[in-house]
């Protein structure tokens, strides 16, 4: 039995809403003030996809951290957040700060209960999970950027794809990024 572990997790679960709320606040604070009020106020997820994504996915991610082993939901949720941050006006470290701030939020919330209940080991273990989360986010961030570079590199060719196919003979089949170039050389009549 791992009583302190259970107690610690039970504490996190009890304070889950507050922690997620504070995490969301800290994450949104990376945007200018006028923007933050919009991100928080506008509840329509189609009118405010950034705010909606952050509030939905940070909640999902925290749930994943609370469970003993994470599911496929974790990379999906991290991807959803990072995909947005990767195209906004942030440096790489600023973009991923959205995850590192969770440690700050946890520290503020847990400082006293950890000391009072002797949960240092459990707390460190949970922080390790947050570190892993940050590493996962870093991998996904790089993947998003690579995808953007790939899209950028392909665009010049995609823009004249028909001419290339007819005059140069490339058929776009070696185009991993071009969702819009489904046609192969088989309709070329050549």
């Amino acid at each position: 039995m791992n009583a302190p572990q259970d107690q610690f997790r039970e504490y996190l679960r009890r304070h889950r809403d507050k922690i997620v709320h504070n995490w969301l606040d800290a994450a949104m604070a990376s945007y200018p003030e006028d923007t933050v009020s919009f991100l928080k106020r506008q509840k329509d997820r189609f009118a405010n996809p950034v705010g909606a994504t952050l509030s939905r996915e940070l909640d999902n991610i925290f749930e994943e951290l609370l469970s003993e082993s994470s599911t496929q939901q974790l990379p999906q949720s991290v991807d959803a957040v990072v995909r947005v941050r990767a195209v906004q006006d942030f440096s790489p470290s600023q973009a991923l700060q959205v995850f590192t701030v969770l440690k700050d939020v946890l520290r503020r919330q847990l400082d006293r209960p950890v000391r009072e209940n002797g949960w240092q080991a459990q707390y460190r273990e949970f922080e390790d999970k947050v570190d892993q989360l940050c590493m996962l986010a870093f991998d996904i961030y790089v993947k998003c950027k690579e995808q953007l570079w790939e899209l950028k590199a392909r665009q010049a060719q995609d823009r004249v794809s028909y001419l290339l196919r007819k005059y140069v003979g490339t058929d776009g089949s070696n185009n991993p990024a071009g969702s819009g170039s489904g046609a192969g050389g088989d309709i070329s009549g050549e």
Partner: peptide, 18 residues
């Protein structure tokens, strides 16, 4: 749109063509 949406879909909604 036909030029811009394919890369947009590629990034945000893979599996949708234009």
């Amino acid at each position: 749109d036909r030029a811009a949406l394919p890369p947009l879909m590629n990034y945000w909604v893979p599996g949708v063509d234009v």
